[in-house]
Nucleic acid binder design. Structure first.
Length: 273
DNA sequence: AAATTCTCCTGAAGGC
DNA sequence: TGCCTTCAGGAGAATT
């Protein structure tokens, strides 16, 4: 599933093919995504130029002449740059046509979205309440410490709350907590400033490393096989429940936290009072 | 307000 | 081999 590193990889992959290019047409084969693809998108976008391809959290923003296309890949979405001559496959729901090329949105589970707004995109209801970017200086241990004050929510849920910080999905929440040595069920408000500083640093490192790896597969995804830059991250805990901790050999435990698979080492990540 | 649960969807994996 | 069931999961909406 696309996490922030993949969305950023996608952004870097499609930006060169789209920026300063004119949209000649829009094809919507299935408008029933997470939200209905607005009918106006076809009429409004034709003739507009994509000025810039940006990212906010896991949202991709195509800044055009009079508005912004807001795209989310959801669980299973991907974007590819293709020749318009290539026939659409199953789950190819939306094409933005640029002459002979197109940006094709494919999403089997349809948890993603393709929206269009002519207002300030950052004030859009989906974007206006987002927390800071994890790779920005605004995101720090002291920031997390302040946000967590008096909150009893498990730290893992807290990290995955997009109003606290964007882009930290299930995989990296698990991984970062393991590396920082914090139990996923630890109440957010009970974590020390020092621990949060470690955690913030860890999150940045893990995301940066993943983006770097996404970059290595960047070449593939925009032309041939259609796999979005899917980094084969070496994961410490995610997907390893019941296996030995790579640090101490203790069997990793797997629990459900907020409907999400949560894996941790009961030895390396001790729950404290 | 804060925390928890529900919901969307379909491919993959497991059971028989 | 094939059909049926279960599960995963981003994140907004609904509920407690």
């Amino acid at each position: 599933m696309p996490e922030l590193p993949e969305v950023e990889t996608t952004r870097r992959g499609i930006a060169p093919a789209l920026e300063q290019q004119k949209i000649t047409a829009v094809i919507v084969r299935n408008k029933k995504l997470r939200w209905i693809v607005p009918i106006e998108i076809s009429r409004d976008l034709a003739g507009q130029t994509v000025q810039k391809v940006q990212r906010r959290g896991k949202y991709l923003l195509l800044a055009c002449d009079t508005g912004t296309v807001i795209i989310h890949l959801g669980m299973s979405g991907s974007l590819r740059i293709l020749s318009v001559a290539i026939a659409a496959n199953k789950h190819d729901h939306v094409d933005l046509i640029f002459g002979k090329q197109c940006l094709r949105f494919n999403d089997p589970r349809r948890f993603g979205c393709v929206l269009w707004t002519q207002k300030d995109a950052l004030l859009h209801p989906l974007l206006k309440n987002l927390g800071p970017e994890p790779l920005s200086t605004a995101f720090s241990g002291s920031y997390l410490f302040r946000c967590a004050n008096k909150r009893h929510v498990p730290i893992k849920n807290f990290l995955m709350d997009s109003s606290i910080v964007v882009g930290v999905g299930n995989i990296y929440a698990n991984e970062a907590l393991f590396i920082a040595g914090i139990h996923p069920q630890q109440a957010a408000g009970s974590i020390s400033l020092a621990q949060f500083q470690c955690l913030a640093k860890t999150i940045k490192e893990v995301l940066r490393a993943a983006i770097k790896q996404g970059g290595t597969t960047l070449r593939n995804f925009s032309n041939s096989d259609g796999k979005p830059g899917y980094f084969k991250q070496k994961l410490n805990v995610y997907g390893r429940g019941g296996l030995a901790c790579l640090t101490c050999k203790t069997i990793l435990e797997e629990i459900r936290l907020g409907q999400r698979s949560t894996v941790y080492c009961p030895q390396c990540q001790i729950l404290t009072l």
